[in-house]
Design a binder for these strands. Sequence first.
DNA 1: CGGCATGTTTCGCC
DNA 2: AGGCGAAACATGCC
Length: 256
Amino acid sequence: VPEGLEAEIWRQELALTVGRTIIDVWVDERVAPPSFVDLVAAVTITGIRRSGKVVLIDTDGPTIGLHFGMTGRVIVDGEARIEQLEYASGLDRPEWDRLRLFTAGNFAPAVRLNDPRRLGHISIDPDLSHLGTDIFDLTARSLGEALGQRRTAVKTALLNPRVVAGLGNLCVDEVLWWAGISPHRPANSLDSIEAELLADVTHRRLRIMLQRGGSTMGTLSPEVRRTCPACERDGSPLQRDRICGRTSVWCPGHQR
DNA sequence: CGGCATGTTTCGCC
DNA sequence: AGGCGAAACATGCC
């Protein structure tokens, strides 16, 4: 699940923990920096932020970065707001826990990071300076400038965190479908009108999908991606291609 | 068993 | 120098 939208949902959920003091820490040392436990023992959570697909837990000590990889998810106070991750198990197995933060007065861990595939990791004071514009800060100008410098496929550019931070494979296909732009188009072939349309569509679609529950709630749902039915807009058969090593679903009819 | 999976980093090649 | 694509990472599921 973890695209920027899921990270945003977890950011909102983690806001419940602001003000609490961590009284115990358990971590899978394979996915955390050395001496992580010592660095965050007894700190108080002061705020939760998000940058692209990274969730940041600010404390009166260091900032904890949560990176979800393909299958990581957050459980706050024992309740998973995103119960099942597409392309991941629906199970909640304790042995997949990578982090548990306990706070005073809460029996269940206040924060769990559960990640079967273990492509995610935990960081301390992460350097996010290389990230491009965040999904919710996109403007026509920033997007146009970022795309204009690249001649790779526009889909590849949009997946690059240095160009836009927070877009994943599903959301990229979704916004290109809504903008009517082929994922194969060279990024620098978009004119300013198309860049403006793309920035506008991205903003609007992501807001709607966020409200509906995340990156699987678009027109190109996981079901649609699997079955490739007729395009909802113009009836052309949806096409599945491999772009940038990722499965890409698009409509050759209206995406040009 | 083979293939596939919502992500990121690294390596090697231009 | 720096952009680009493929491979690698690790594991579960169909």
